[in-house]
Design a protein around this nucleic acid. Structure first.
Lengths: 206, 206
DNA sequence: ATATAGTTTAAACATTTGATTAAAACATTT
DNA sequence: AAATGTTTTAATCAAATGTTTAAACTATAT
C-alpha cells in the first residue's frame, strides 16, 4: 500500500485535464497516462476502463455544474438576493473552470440517454422551493408572472454563455485574459441589473 | 460524368449529419460512408481526407452560424427593429439546426487557433455599422450607455443557450418536441421584451 | 530473510482507424 | 464497337487505440 491514493489521484487529475480539453473521443488513454507521468496500464488497474474513468470525471463535473445552483436555490434568503447570489456564484464557478460548461453540454449532447437520469434526480426536487418562492412573489404582485423554467433559463443563459464563447469573444474583440476578466465582470453587473429590472415590478407610487 | 455532384453531395450530406451528431473525433469515415450508402474510398476520392471533408462542413456551419447575424446587422432599419429581427432570425436558425450551436462552439473550443482567423475577418468589419447606430442612440439618450460587445453577448446568450441546453431542458422539465417548441417561442417573446426594456430608456413625459 | 499481497512496468493483443491501391464498372467520344 | 477518361468497388495497409498479460518491483507481516 505504497502510493495507492496518490497514484489514483494523479490519474484522476490528468484525466480531468485531458478530458476537459479534448472530450471523451478526443482524449486517448495514452494522452492521460503521459499527462500523469505513469504507465498506461495503471489506468485500467485503478479504473477498469476508459469509460469508467470518464464517468468518474464526468460525475464530478456535473456536480460542480449543478451543485452551486442547488445550494443557492435552497438558501433561506429573499428571491432577489437569491437571484443575485445565483448569478454571482455561477460567474465564480465558470471563471474558475472555463471549460466546464462546454464540456458538460457537449458530452450531454453526444450521450443524452445515459446521463440524463443523473441530472433529473438531482435537479427537479430542489427547484420546488424556488418555485414556491417565485409563485408567492408573483401572487403578491412583486414579480412579473413568469414560469420558473424561463427564469432559470435567463440566469443560466446569461452566466454560462460568455464562458462558452470565451474563445470567440477573446479573438473577435482582441482581448487578453485580463481584458476578458474585466469584460466578464462588467457583463455580470449588466445582466444582474437587467434580470432584476425585468422580473421585479417597480412599486407604484401610491 | 454520371453522378458526380450527386455522389459528392451525398457524402457532404452524410458528413454534415454525422459530424454534427458526433463531432470530428467521434465520427469515423466509415460512419459517414455507411450513412451515405457508399463505398468508403469515395470519401477520399472526392475530398482528399477526413480533415478536408470536415473543414468543408465546418465552414458551411460557421457561415450559417454568423451569416444571418451579419445580414441583419447591415440592414437599413432602426436599432430596435434590428434587435428584434436579430433575435427572431437566430431563433429560426437554431430551431432548424438544433445541433449547430453546440457543434460550432465545441469544435471552436477544441481547435481555436486554426479557426479563429476565419471568424475574425468576417465579423469585426460588419459590426461597425451596428456600433455606429448604437453610439448614436446612446448620444441621443434613447439607449442606455452600453458597449456593443455586451449588447451582442446579450442577444447571442439568450437566443443560443436554450438550444445549447435543449437536451437538459427537455429531460429536466419532461418536455417533448412540441412542448419544447412552445417553451422556446415563449422564451423568445420574453427575452425580446427584456432586452428592449433594458436597453431603451423610456421617454420621460415632458 | 522469506513469503505474501499490493503496485508498477514493458510488451503485446485484437480492433479500429484513416488512407491507399489496383482492378472493375460506367459513361462518353471517336 | 473501340478507346478513353471518369467513377466505384473490394481488398489491403500502416498506424493508433483500448485493453490485457505476465513478469518485475515494493512494502509489509511473519
Amino acid at each position: 500500500m505504497l502510493s495507492v491514493s496518490s497514484t489514483e489521484e494523479k490519474i484522476k487529475e490528468a484525466a480531468r485535464k485531458i478530458f476537459l480539453q479534448k472530450g471523451f473521443e478526443g482524449a486517448t488513454t495514452r494522452d492521460i497516462s503521459r499527462e500523469a507521468g505513469l504507465n498506461c496500464a495503471l489506468m485500467n488497474y485503478y479504473f477498469r476502463s476508459k469509460e469508467k474513468l470518464f464517468a468518474s470525471v464526468f460525475e464530478e463535473m456535473l456536480h460542480l455544474f449543478f451543485q452551486g445552483m442547488i445550494t443557492v436555490l435552497n438558501k433561506p434568503i429573499s428571491l432577489k438576493e437569491k437571484i443575485i447570489e445565483l448569478i454571482d456564484h455561477d460567474f465564480q464557478t465558470f471563471k474558475r473552470n472555463p471549460s466546464l460548461c462546454i464540456f458538460v453540454l457537449n458530452e450531454l449532447h453526444r450521450n443524452p440517454d445515459q446521463l440524463i437520469n443523473i441530472i433529473q434526480s438531482a435537479k427537479t426536487q430542489t427547484a420546488l422551493l424556488f418555485e414556491l418562492q417565485l409563485k408567492e412573489a408573483i401572487d403578491k404582485g412583486v414579480v412579473r408572472p413568469v414560469k420558473m423554467q424561463h427564469v432559470l433559463s435567463l440566469l443560466l443563459s446569461n452566466t454560462q454563455f460568455i464562458f462558452l464563447g470565451k474563445a470567440i469573444t477573446m479573438s473577435t474583440w482582441q482581448m487578453d485574459e485580463e481584458a476578458f476578466d474585466t469584460y466578464a465582470e462588467d457583463h455580470k453587473q449588466l445582466i444582474t441589473q437587467m434580470i432584476i429590472n425585468f422580473l421585479f415590478i417597480p412599486e407604484t407610487a401610491s
